[in-house]
Design a protein around this nucleic acid. Structure first.
Lengths: 140, 140
DNA sequence: CTTGAGCCTGTACCAGCTACAGACCCTAGA
DNA sequence: TCTAGGGTCTGTAGCTGGTACAGGCTCAAG
């Protein structure tokens, strides 16, 4: 029992993965592309993480869940790391992301409309005539 | 004027691209992955397309516009090429695709809800406190 | 002392393209 | 006739956001 100083405990990559639910390899990937910092290493070259890395990774994962691209995540982190980020700046990033999310929803809704109205015309029978195929082969 | 027989005219890759609006390189890509057939070649090894290739490529592009993956496109083409496809089979593919489109819409709508309600709480001011950052750093 | 688990690195793979290098080929203009 | 410019050919690399695996260390338990 050599870590009687509570603060000495380090986390290895697998620990970080388990704590956050992140895939093991993804952690290394995030380090490679520069959204996770390079952690200190043990004498045996193992990555030595601490609580701050847990927070960082959770931040990244939440942002990803909200559909932010890794580029956008980088921007958010740059603001946070700068220490002087303002609500206005963050709001700007979030709003432009929101716009692209809405654009994607609109695209998919358009697809959904076309597709569902076409499929609705299908007889579903064992016949070769099919409104879906007709729509795809249309000689407009 | 040696193609007085109207049917002799062939299309080169660039012609096909222009006629369909497809990117030049994408045509070759579609051939490589087997959704476009390998066309005959001229004596100088140029791809020689005809009207049937235009139809095929348009079919693929329409299916892609409707969000079908290239794997799904392959399935659709296999049915069509089989010559004996039935409306029921096509309907099956279209319906399962429709389900995945709807799932994506739901995902994005969930993201949109969270994001817009969070951003709505922003003051947008020059202050460091920001509800978006709070949501991302939450210590739940 | 061995065996298994964990970690390290680099690399390849997925979709769905896009783009570029380095060879050819062909046509129009000077 | 020469040349400049387009087109085409091939293979290959790049993009995003990961995932996975090989081959080599290290470490702890049995």
């Amino acid at each position: 029992m050599n870590n009687h100083h509570r603060s000495v405990k380090v986390l290895r990559r697998g620990d970080l993965a388990k704590l956050t639910g992140c895939n093991l390899e993804t952690i290394r990937y995030y380090e490679n592309i520069g959204v996770m910092p390079e952690p200190p290493r043990t004498s045996k070259n193992y990555r030595a993480y601490d609580e701050s890395h847990v927070g960082r990774l959770r931040f990244i994962m939440r942002a990803r869940e909200l559909g932010f691209t890794l580029d956008e995540v980088r921007d958010l982190l740059a603001l946070v790391d700068g220490g002087v980020q303002t609500c206005g700046e963050v709001q700007g990033l979030a709003n432009s992301h929101l716009a692209s999310v809405r654009a994607k929803i609109d695209d998919l809704k358009r697809i959904e409309r076309v597709l569902s109205s076409t499929v609705a015309q299908c007889t579903g029978d064992d016949v070769p005539e099919c409104p879906v195929i007709d729509a795809l082969t249309e000689v407009t």
